[in-house]
Design a protein around this nucleic acid. Structure first.
Lengths: 182, 182
DNA sequence: ACGGACATGTAATCGGTTACATGATTAC
DNA sequence: GTAATCATGTAACCGATTACATGTCCGT
């Protein structure tokens, strides 16, 4: 139920419409908790039913501006301080590694090289974003920068790991199956 | 559709029953692609319908031993070499970081300390598992060890990040809100 | 006048989780 | 005999994705 809390978190900063929130998801939460338009409007409806948010104002084009309620704030604080984050891993990149024995070692190494490359691109993306965000000095920047740093460290770690893993395969395939020698 | 490929990958090593596969999921794939019993039996049914696997033998207690077909092997190889892994991030741990401005800085720091602690525990778990697995010298060990190493590096990275982030909050809250001075 | 952005909603489908349900065989 | 393990299946529900559907307002 984290989408719910993401919405509460955003509404705790400013009241906003579904449309506004969608934009925020696209630009700043896309990398930690992506959500689609359908999902978002549906969840806002449920939040309003549960009285965790209220429709504070209505504008042109059927615009509904939502605001967080006291109950919503309480729920948000509870989630922030008293609910253990659950770590779901589920990486299909790592799953493939488990079955790399099914292809020849050159293909396996190519796979890991590609992953290193992808992680390097990711890293560059994070670097660009960090420079872009660093200008502002608001709340969003302070805490947003912490997750940006996570992204930087994660992509660096993954690149190094993939390069190391490629070397490991080279080592073990080099000894197990010498290239047509003898 | 990665569960499907996980099953194909396991069956490419040895024929097995749903029950056998479930045990393998619980012990060795739990950390990269967890799956439940219901999901697994349902997917095996679909794989058989699609003729990517066959029922190679039937045993006592209604046991069905599945074997991968040529079409299944082809699908597995295609997935391994030609399908780009998709990176879904979705970390509720990081999502909370975005909203840490909602609680006071001592609570925010406590949150990050707790995450550092959890990552340290994770790291120990991976270390224990590595020693345990390192004995065997089969395929599963070779490639399994690569993902174990990923787990070690990931948990180390996350611990270091959380400790750094706690320091960042201390720094910025220390300057923004001096303790009752003046 | 018209195109683009604003704005909200619904329906179908899918993958995953939890819970329920049942029964056979084996080891003690 | 009986408990543990082996073994398979179904149903309800939930969150997420994709696609469809509709309409309004604003700037040029």
């Amino acid at each position: 139920m984290s989408l719910r809390h993401a919405l509460l978190g955003l509404l705790a900063r400013n009241p906003a419409s579904g449309y506004d929130l969608l934009k925020i998801f696209e630009i700043s939460l896309a990398n930690v908790w992506p959500a689609t338009q359908s999902q978002l409007y549906a969840e806002l409806g449920r939040l309003a039913d549960a009285e965790l948010v209220t429709v504070a104002a209505e504008g042109p084009r059927g615009r509904k501006e939502y605001a967080i309620s006291d109950a919503g704030l309480a729920e948000l604080h509870h989630w922030l301080t008293a609910v253990e984050p659950r770590k779901i891993v589920r990486s299909d990149m790592l799953l493939r590694v488990f079955f790399l024995g099914q292809v020849d070692s050159e293909q396996a190494r190519a796979y890991l090289r590609r992953q290193a490359e992808i992680s390097a691109e990711e890293h560059e993306k994070w670097e660009a974003l960090t420079e872009f965000v660093a200008e502002g000095e608001d709340d969003l920047s302070v805490f947003g920068l912490l997750s940006l740093e996570w992204g930087l460290r994660f992509s660096a770690m993954q690149r190094e790991w993939a390069e190391w893993a490629e070397g490991e395969i080279e080592r073990s395939s080099g000894t197990d199956a010498p290239p047509a020698a003898r």
